[in-house]
Computed example of a mutant assay.
Amino acid sequence: MSDLLGVAVLGTGHMGADHIRRLENVVSGAKVVAVADPDADRAEHALAGIAGASTHTEAEAALDAPGVQAVLIASPGPAHEEALLAAFARGLPVLCEKPMVPGSAGALRVVEAEARLGRRLAQIGFMRRYDAEYRQLKAVLDEGRLGRPLMLHCVHRNVSSPPDFTSAMLIDSSVAHEIDAARWLLGQELTAVTVLRPRSSDRAPEGLLDPQFVLFETDGGALVDVEVFVNCGFGYQVRCEAVCEAGSARIGEGHGMLVTSAGAAREEVAQDYLVRFADAYDREVQAWVDATRQGRVTGPGAWDGYAASVVAEAGVRAQESGARVTVDLAPRPALYE
């Protein structure tokens, strides 16, 4: 492997462009050598000022470009399965943004394909595992000084939802992060989900059921609740409180500057996930580059992506039916034990 890991970035939208910037200006040990996007102008714009990288409108053309040693997938979710399988066929390590694959059937095909290879190539972009506060909370829970975790209370709020955002996407796009975070923090699988809905906010676009309250059960007897509100109007907020037998621990408070003036105090609230989790994204991609250069995968893998897709799919069924829906995972391949 050369001194710098040559990366092909698939997708140059909001997330992909930010990863290109990160690989070029923040992360050490890597360089962007190819990008792919159906919008050629957008791809060219994302590469502005980066010499030597090629642009393509087809993902496989970028994978076959000279110098490509690894792949970062930041294209829309429905394109992920084909891109992952193409990367596997070429033996290329992958960092794939969530969702790994939107549907559980496709996600299972990815798991089975990687299991047939007999080695892990995919890391899935659940970047909260790299956030300093989440890692601190994980350490507190793992060391056990607060006793057995009983509940996780989670909040996930966005200023506004993007165009064409659907009620199902509150679960399979937004809450997908809490699904993985809960599995990781607790070391337990989610076994059932119930979705409750208050009256929708007047800020919600017509037809969007927002906010929602999602309740998960785990195989360790814990409960996880998530308030998801994607049109709260005032800022981007992610919080999590673990309630244990001998105490509690809470993260997600006070990330903005506190301004005191004229007898009042005002705290700035982040407006975007790329602001709130900037450091987590940096840590995630750096860890991926470092591990890839050593021939390893150390982050959340294809099984975690599959589990999140299955739970999210059950959550959408619960949302639509109003009933409690159980989560049924396929047998875990030995590769992920």
Rank of each mutant, 00 (worst) to 15 (best):
A74M: 11
F126T: 06
V224D: 00
G263M: 05
A270V: 05
V316E: 07
V68C: 00
V155C: 10
F213W: 13
V26Q: 12
D18L: 13
G16E: 05
A83K: 06
R148L: 07
A176E: 07
V289H: 05
Y134M: 00
Y236T: 09
A307Y: 09
S200H: 14
V285M: 14
I124Y: 03
D210W: 06
E241T: 15
A330E: 13
M1Y: 08
G91H: 08
V269A: 08
R145T: 13
L258T: 14
M151F: 13
Q294N: 11
A318M: 01
E217R: 15
E114R: 12
V140C: 03
A334H: 14
D219R: 12
L5H: 04
G106H: 10
Y273D: 02
E82P: 00
S75R: 06
A74P: 00
K98P: 05
R21N: 11
D272P: 00
A278V: 01
Q286L: 04
G263C: 04
A280G: 07
R22F: 01
V243Q: 06
P66C: 04
T12A: 04
A74R: 02
L223S: 14
W303T: 00
A330Y: 05
L152C: 02
G103W: 10
T12W: 07
C232L: 02
A86R: 05
G103N: 12
I251P: 00
L215F: 12
D164N: 15
A176I: 11
M127R: 12
R90G: 05
V110M: 05
V228C: 09
V289R: 07
R135S: 08
H177P: 01
M169A: 14
Q271L: 11
A249N: 08
A330T: 06
P198M: 08
M257K: 13
L150Y: 04
A312C: 15
A168M: 05
T57L: 02
G315Q: 04
A192S: 15
A302E: 07
A334K: 15
